[in-house]
């Protein structure tokens, strides 16, 4: 699995939410802790459903949490 073109603010959001642990976030959305680690490191791009669940935990929209690494990636 190569580096995902989609990056995210999960690490920052966790710290802004009482320094929520990766394990706690994983439990909230029903995934493994290793998956949270992989998403934060950009090694795994979550499905839309999982991205929405993750954003929901922090009360944000999906595009507040996830973004393209560079703008050229959005061009069709």
């Amino acid at each position: 699995m190569t580096k995902s073109p989609v990056a995210n603010h999960l690490r920052r959001l966790r710290f802004e939410h009482n320094e929520m642990s990766q394990e706690a976030l994983a439990k909230r959305v029903g995934i493994a802790r290793q998956t949270v680690i992989a998403i934060e490191a950009g090694q795994y791009a979550p499905s839309l459903e999982l991205a929405m669940r993750l954003a929901h935990v922090f009360g944000r929209r999906v595009d507040d949490v996830f973004f393209w690494r560079n703008s050229t990636s959005t061009k069709g």
Partner: peptide, 10 residues
Amino acid sequence: NSRSDERDQL
């Protein structure tokens, strides 16, 4: 107590 998720499925 372990969870299997979409990354495992992929």
